[in-house]
């Protein structure tokens, strides 16, 4: 548990804040090379995902077992539900490894936020969403530039059929959208959802603990209510965590599909 809980004992309540997201394991607070809890968790997630899908595909049979069923379900969902629909049946195959990896990695790391004993969403540290976004950003611009060339790619930013006086403005808008605000919104959406969700859980759980353990009988009732709400919010968080993994993958596919699409 957080050291704040101990500090709060009898002394008044310290509300949770951004400092609750800093978890050094090896190394000092000031070093650039500190091994942190989210770093260990992301490595753990890679091991877990690798193990799961190796196990799920080890003994493949026509009538799938439980593991194979789940594994193929996730793959089919990414392939048919995201890849084929958003990138198009001609090109989508070569992007499936990227989409599949992004979805499973983000999903596991998000759901870590409510798994007992782990209970921390890796993506609430901004560096992880930024890293994933850089990959998406490089991939969708690279495939667009390779297919259309620099001039063709820039030309294709503007949809055809606009009144000609508005084209320069729309070009500027599209350019800023694709090169600046897309990576910002993509990484911030994932980060902020995980950060806010974890903070919300901390408020309800630490608040409940403080009110039940340290305060008078009237507060104990409110504290119980807060504890119940913490459970409700945990289920709500599960929804948000799955949804955010889905949205990130969905937008990566949309951006790749958009970069490849012929506007003319």
């Amino acid at each position: 548990m957080s050291p704040l809980v101990l500090a709060a004992g009898g002394e008044g309540f310290t509300p949770p804040g951004p400092e609750d997201f800093w978890w050094p394991i090896v190394g000092s607070n000031t070093s650039n090379w500190t091994l942190t809890r989210p770093a260990v968790m992301v490595l753990l997630s890679v091991v877990l995902i690798g193990w799961f899908f190796l196990a799920a595909t080890k003994r493949r049979s026509l009538v799938p077992g439980k593991l194979q069923f789940v594994g193929e379900g996730i793959y089919g969902f990414i392939r048919e539900g995201i890849g084929r629909d958003l990138i198009g049946s001609k090109d989508f195959r070569r992007f499936l490894p990227l989409l599949f990896t992004q979805f499973t990695l983000i999903l596991v790391n998000n759901v870590f936020g409510i798994i007992p004993f782990v209970q921390f969403p890796t993506m609430s540290r901004i560096g992880f969403p930024i890293g994933l976004t850089i990959i998406t950003y490089l991939v969708f611009h690279a495939v667009g530039l390779r297919k259309k060339g620099v001039v063709g790619y820039l030309k294709d930013l503007v949809p055809p059929g606009l009144p000609s006086w508005i084209v320069p403005f729309i070009f500027l808008l599209e350019f800023v959208d694709k090169f600046i605000t897309r990576p910002i919104t993509l990484s911030l959406r994932l980060f902020a959802n995980m950060f806010a969700g974890h903070l919300l859980l901390l408020v309800f759980i630490l608040g409940a603990e403080h009110m039940i353990l340290d305060l008078g009988p009237g507060f104990k009732v409110v504290g119980l209510l807060s504890a119940v709400l913490a459970v409700v919010m945990t289920f709500f968080e599960l929804l948000v965590e799955v949804l955010q993994a889905y949205i990130f993958t969905l937008l990566t596919a949309l951006y790749i599909g958009g970069a490849l699409a012929e506007e003319h």
Binding site: L173, E174, V176, D177, T181, R182, I184, T185, R189, I247
Partner: peptide, 10 residues
């Protein structure tokens, strides 16, 4: 979901 990016860009 992508609309956010356009609004911010504008």
């Amino acid at each position: 979901w992508g609309i956010t990016s356009y609004l911010l860009a504008g």
